[in-house]
Nucleic acid binder design. Sequence first.
DNA 1: TAGATTGTTAATCGATTAACAATC
DNA 2: TAGATTGTTAATCGATTAACAATC
Lengths: 212, 212
Amino acid sequence: MSENEKKVPTVVVKRLPRYYRYLGELLKQDIKRISSNALSVKMNVTASQIRQDFNYFGGFGQQGYGYNVEHLYNEIGDILGLNDGDTTVIVGAGNLGRALASHDTFEKRGFKLVGIFDNDINIIGTKINGIEVMSIDKLEEFLNSHRVDIGILTVPKAAVMETAEKLVNCGVKGLMNFSYTELKFDKDVAVENVHLSDPLMTLSYKIKQNQN
Amino acid sequence: MSENEKKVPTVVVKRLPRYYRYLGELLKQDIKRISSNALSVKMNVTASQIRQDFNYFGGFGQQGYGYNVEHLYNEIGDILGLNDGDTTVIVGAGNLGRALASHDTFEKRGFKLVGIFDNDINIIGTKINGIEVMSIDKLEEFLNSHRVDIGILTVPKAAVMETAEKLVNCGVKGLMNFSYTELKFDKDVAVENVHLSDPLMTLSYKIKQNQN
DNA sequence: TAGATTGTTAATCGATTAACAATC
DNA sequence: TAGATTGTTAATCGATTAACAATC
């Protein structure tokens, strides 16, 4: 990052996927352009925030016109690295692993699933979404012979640390962890810990509030 | 909410599940008490933030001692409404619905799954995690004869709005939506929209940053 | 009591919103 | 050109951190 580029706040980065989704919808509806104001109404945020957010990455709009939907969509995709052809492996072919392997949004977003691994002899060899489940014993061999950018971890908690280290040691650059732990590596390894019950708990809180 | 209670910022509420998880771990390790400072090191946040956060709900600690782990854990559980015995139904028994039905953390957090619904004749009647999948045609009948607090939506996007409205009309107070839309109701219906590919995109962004 | 650590106020920092000149 | 809407600076708001008196 060069001297004069200001670091983009995490809070802004976290909003990018949402912009991307909304713009994708507009694109589908064949809407060619949109103003920050019109978008703000749809997304329920302020127009000011939208313009500020986009300006972290340079202006994508045009005065008096607004934003070209397709252009903006592609730019945000680029910023998010969705056009980098990132490859993924899923480790852990249990219920959640299988669900994610079949989750076609990942593919739509430009991520290519190249391998699924498990240690259950009854699962190894079966196919999920056209991809054969391989033995976890073959993981390192596979990683050494294929470029894998992202590891999606759906293994039990007890196995997650060991698995994560294997992945990282073999050059995987990012981990999406669904196990019940919080992984953390040096800053050169990107990690996203996903806890599916967190939003459920937040929901429970909100329900309780509404009752009063 | 009474006059003099200040509204808890969303950002604080969103942190509660994480505190809850960490305290649960401490509890398992038989750690009886912890100071905000020790917890801050573990959780990689500031001790100041921890004390501020807890103080929105009244003080749970004791000067010179710190916090009693079990007590704090239970208090946060109460605040989150985990002891309210909230019941859930899952609508959509595809891969993700099945994975969530088998996801035992939901149950550990005090949520009771009471029904699973689908429209696929091949799935109806099968059992997931001991619960029989019912026809979606029976949804309203079921909701009218059972108290259901939370609806977990794993139906295709095209069906989500209609399903959500059915649930809400039958008294469901909160929705956890995994479909590719953003649901929004009046503020008396709590909604959490979960987009599994969002963290994957954020991860992709981080990887791209690390490359530079 | 002395030491530790909270609860809470005050200071700082960062993010959001408002405003408007620039310009398409 | 006149109107619309951005890009961007300035003002405001809110969240985080620092500091410390209260107190266990």
